[in-house]
């Protein structure tokens, strides 16, 4: 059978990404352009303007690197959600235009499913428990009966959001998490902060508020160390509970915060205690990217899933556990 080529476009938040994969799981290119706010957190309109201005060069470079022309593609996959409306619309407009131009199917992809599928592809782990942690999501999930079920998640803000916001309050700048971890290395004294685990869920908003409030009176290294200990400790606890509950043979850590060495060490220790294998998605595929959309798009395309351009609406709040994943059946 002839090899198929799928392009994936990602634009749910900071990153405009374009990646191309082939049907045998090769990542032929994976280009990214990231919007970095001049101050504060992400501004959806500014981010979408960034995406609009970078889309064309990112896509061209992605095609060049893959040594393909547009009309050699078999499908165009688009991350339709969840994410920020203006950002999603920009990516969707671009993807629709390409699909119409080359007269190939448009494949709808859920961003969260893509983070899981790229992890499964690169770690060769068939049925792991998944910890998906990023600036916008904190989800503990496992596959069961046609869908990725959510076993635990954040009740409010995401882990990456909590850490980034705190890093900004300390004036650490971008990217927040590595700088925060470097600072925390020198921390010695643990400062008590709210540790909030509710059932299988976590809550990070109270932790962020309290840690931020303590900045003026605390040693920054001690405070950073304590924040990371509590934030990662909470995640480790719900991951451990889900491992014990689902009895999956392995854990896959994916999403932007998966790059954290400290978090990796902690979750590795959790896995050791339960004789589970531990895998992390490769660093260049941890954050938002087009290749993961392309690969998940291919999996869906193979199952005959596509969406007519005129009804390819974005879905800002498209939950992971709403998506049917027939390729896992």
């Amino acid at each position: 059978m002839r090899k198929l080529y799928v392009m994936g476009i990602e634009s749910t938040a900071h990153t405009f990404g374009c990646g191309i994969v082939s049907s045998n799981g090769e990542i032929l290119s994976n280009l990214r352009s990231e919007y970095i706010p001049s101050s504060g957190g992400i501004h959806p309109r500014e981010a979408s303007q960034h995406h609009a201005s970078k889309a064309s060069t990112t896509i061209k470079q992605s095609l060049n690197e893959a040594a393909l022309r547009l009309n050699e593609l078999d499908a165009v996959a688009i991350s339709l959600g969840p994410g920020l409306g203006p950002c999603l619309r920009t990516g969707a407009t671009v993807a629709r235009a390409i699909a119409l131009m080359i007269k190939k199917p448009l494949i709808p992809v859920n961003h969260c499913v893509a983070h899981i599928e790229i992890g499964r592809l690169t770690t060769k782990e068939d049925d792991p428990l998944v910890a998906y942690v990023s600036g916008g999501n904190t989800i503990v999930s496992a596959y069961s009966d046609g869908r990725y079920r959510v076993f635990g998640e954040t009740l409010d803000i995401a882990l990456g959001n909590c850490l980034d916001a705190f890093a900004r309050s300390l004036g650490l700048g971008h990217p927040g998490v590595p700088k925060l971890e470097a600072l925390a290395e020198r921390g010695k004294n643990f400062i008590p902060l709210p540790y909030v685990v509710k059932g299988q869920d976590v809550s990070y908003s109270g932790l962020l508020t309290m840690a931020t409030r303590k900045i003026p009176e605390s040693n920054p290294s001690d405070l950073s160390m304590s924040l990371l200990e509590v934030a990662y400790g909470m995640l480790a606890e719900v991951v451990e509970r889900a491992l014990a509950h689902t009895e999956k043979p392995s854990l896959l850590l994916t999403g932007g915060v998966a790059r954290s060495p400290r978090l990796q060490r902690i979750l590795k220790a959790v896995c050791d205690e339960h004789s589970a294998r531990f895998h992390v998605v490769p660093p260049d595929l941890a954050g938002d990217n087009g290749a993961m959309i392309a690969w998940t798009g291919y999996l869906a395309f193979k199952e005959g899933i596509s969406v007519p351009v005129e009804s390819s609406y974005i879905r800002q709040r498209w939950r992971l556990d709403e998506v049917e994943v027939p390729w896992r059946r």
Binding site: A158, W318, R319, L320
Partner: peptide, 12 residues
Amino acid sequence: EIRRRGRYVEGG
């Protein structure tokens, strides 16, 4: 309300 507060639930 708690359900909607969670990340990404349809219905806004």
